[in-house]
């Protein structure tokens, strides 16, 4: 009896109570709001916090600081949050679907597909516009994910998590090698690297308007799938035993990853760390239920990226340190602490 209740307690601890998760969401949203205001306020021209609030709620087109906020700072802050949320959620989906702690959105072939087409675009069409590059990047993301999923589906025995991950890393390696080769041959590798380390600094309102619909649809799809992903993360046999059609879940999961990562990569380049690590951090905090993991990852990812963006601007002004590097430097100590504390993977 005693041991039984102890075991029960242990199980409930594994599935942490919704209290913690709600707390993460509420505190997270407050932090997001605060960091958004800091992000908008911080920059070369000094603005007061009143200006920030006024520009958002009572916009005055003749006031130059209002224009700065509306045209430059606000898009940047929104972009950072959206990109962080999108990458974190697609990372969570990938790790749940493949049951592998090493899985990240880039393994689905999305980022390497996009870098492949970007390399082609930079080599073949010099002087292409930013929006044009975004289109190329998005098409490339689709190509990469399509290849990975198509090939795994063609394989004997159908799509299995391990196969998906292996095909993904093979395709990723193939496509990114091809883009490095193109970069070396046509002497555009520094341009490619700049595009990918770019972050959200040169974002403009129309870029965000282009990407946000994809991210919103992707997030909704992820939330709908979250229940099934929890089941799938218990293992394919269990999922099948419970009557789940795993191939459909994997297919729609891939679509969600494609929408989210594709949009994120085309506006902000390659910020791999968020998608890899935020899902782990979230899992340490809220447990193994993907109905909580997915919304919490979105919020934590947004916080990490917007903070990294602020720090990147503060480190060495007026130059900006690549946001991808800052995310790693902020996230790693915290991640290492959690990994040592819990030592539990999936």
């Amino acid at each position: 009896m005693n041991t039984k209740s102890k075991n029960l307690k242990k199980t409930t601890k594994e599935f942490k109570n919704p209290f913690t998760s709600s707390a993460v969401i509420i505190i997270g949203i407050v932090l997001l709001g605060l960091s958004m205001i800091v992000s908008i306020n911080f920059g070369a021209s000094n603005l007061s916090y009143q200006d920030v609030l006024k520009a958002i709620f009572h916009f005055d087109p003749d006031n130059s600081s209002h224009v700065i906020i509306r045209e430059l700072r606000l898009p940047r802050a929104i972009a950072a949050i959206c990109v962080g949320a999108a990458l974190a959620v697609s990372g969570a989906i990938m790790q749940g679907m493949t049951r592998n702690p090493l899985a990240s959105p880039s393994i689905m072939g999305v980022t390497s597909g996009s870098s492949f087409l970007i390399a082609i675009a930079l080599a073949a069409l010099p002087g292409i516009s930013y929006l044009g590059l975004m289109m190329f990047s998005f098409v490339g993301a689709g190509l990469g994910a399509g290849l990975v999923f198509g090939i795994s589906a063609m394989a004997k025995g159908g799509v299995t998590p391990v196969k998906l991950a292996l095909v993904g890393s093979a395709i990723t390696s193939l496509l990114s090698s091809l883009s490095t080769a193109i970069g070396i041959k046509f002497n555009v590798s520094k341009d490619i690297s700049y595009w990918y380390a770019g972050g959200v600094s040169s974002i403009q309102p129309q870029h965000i308007l282009f990407a946000i619909p994809f991210i919103v649809v992707g997030l909704i799809l992820a939330l709908i799938l979250s229940r099934s992903i929890s089941v799938l993360s218990l293992g394919e046999d269990v999922a099948k035993g419970l009557g789940q059609r795993t191939v459909y879940i994997q297919f729609f999961g891939t679509i969600a990853v494609l929408l989210l990562t594709g949009a994120a990569v085309s506006i902000a380049g390659m910020i791999g760390f968020v998608g890899l690590v935020i899902p782990h951090i979230t899992r340490f905090l809220v447990g193994v239920d993907y109905r909580w993991i997915i919304p919490c990852s979105a919020i934590l990812g947004g916080i990490l990226l917007i903070t990294a963006d602020i720090v990147g601007r503060m480190v060495n002004p007026p130059f900006e340190t690549p946001v991808s590097a800052i995310t790693a430097l902020i996230g790693v100590p915290f991640f290492l602490y959690l990994a040592r504390k819990e030592g539990r993977g999936l």
């Binding site: 760390f273 890899l276 690590v277 590097a325 790693a328 996230g331 990994a339 030592g343």
Partner: peptide, 18 residues
């Protein structure tokens, strides 16, 4: 443990990559 090894590896790799 293998899982911790992999997780710590991810972290350190990311730091050096940055």
């Amino acid at each position: 443990t293998p899982v911790r090894l992999i997780l710590v590896g991810i972290g350190i790799n990311a730091a050096f990559g940055a």
